[in-house]
């Protein structure tokens, strides 16, 4: 089985978000990690390979440091890595990214494409499903359980308040939700071996694309930071009154309910 795992390198979950002089997110000095949901996808890809044989290729789109993420995936047990790196990616939107990835993936034989259900940076949750469409294959998103045979998948996906069981013929795209598996730590041998595994770097030109093909559909007009946290307040009064007041504040002021 040929397995492709689409991953993204994101800011570490603790990263402090700062805007630079241009009002853009400042990535300077920020620690980068593999998007945690993509780790489930990597793990599932490796498990599928372990069960059914074949090869796992990880594909990512990113800057100079994206190779680190791919090396990490290789250490976990992925066989090959592909990094598409091009300055044009800095301003591309979800649609354009999918155009690029679709071209890159088209060069790799695939039966199943796995990815995380969401990236914790932009939170867009679009790429994998869009990619399925771009490649004209079905997709199942937010999967928490996956059973695969040679030519079909049975996936349990999370929906609001329950689950769905979906059967789909291969090839297909699956997005991983937390709970699908527990990503492994690589053996040290795996880490050593990863240093020697093939890692291919491609530019847009290598994929027959140019920046002009990728005019974004969506543009970011500005970025802002949340208002600073207000000083906490103690709600006075007896239990009943305080509880009522609290409920009101949460609903009307904080708007979290």
């Amino acid at each position: 089985m040929n397995i492709v795992v689409l991953i993204k390198q994101t800011f570490d979950t603790e990263a402090k978000i700062v805007l630079d002089a241009n009002g853009k997110i400042d990535a300077n000095g920020v620690n980068l990690i593999i998007n945690p949901y993509d780790e489930y996808a990597i793990e599932e890809g490796i498990r599928l390979k372990e069960k059914l044989g074949g090869e796992v290729t990880v594909v990512t789109l990113g800057g100079a440091r994206a190779q680190e993420a791919v090396r990490t995936a290789l250490a976990m047990g992925v066989d090959k890595g592909v990094v598409v790196s091009d300055p044009a990616i800095d301003t591309s939107d979800d649609w354009a990214n999918v155009e690029i990835i679709a071209k890159a993936v088209a060069q790799i034989p695939f039966d199943i494409i796995l990815s995380g259900r969401i990236a914790i940076d932009d939170g867009a949750s679009q790429t994998a499903v869009r990619l399925a469409e771009a490649l004209s294959v079905p997709s199942v998103s937010s999967v928490i359980k996956l059973e695969a045979t040679g030519d079909q998948l049975v996936a349990t996906r999370e929906i609001d308040g329950g689950t769905e069981l979906i059967e789909v013929a291969l090839p297909a795209v699956i997005t991983a939700q937390k709970g699908l598996n527990e990503p492994r730590y690589p053996s040290v041998a795996g880490i050593m071996k990863a240093k020697k595994k093939p890692l291919k770097t491609l530019t847009l030109a290598d994929l027959g694309l140019s920046a002009g093909d990728l005019a974004p559909k969506m543009v970011v007009t500005k970025m802002t930071l949340p208002d600073p946290r207000k000083a906490g307040i103690r709600i006075p009064g007896e239990a009943a009154d305080a509880a009522k007041e609290l409920a009101k504040l949460l609903h009307e002021e904080a708007k979290v309910l």
Partner: peptide
């Protein structure tokens, strides 16, 4: 050997993350 390859255990990632972002481990 494992940490340099990006495999700090899950429970320690927020600590390292906070050290990167805040210069302290306590978020």
């Amino acid at each position: 050997t494992t940490v340099a390859a990006g495999f700090l255990p899950a429970n320690l990632r927020p600590i390292a993350g906070s050290l990167h972002a805040n210069g302290n481990p306590w978020s």
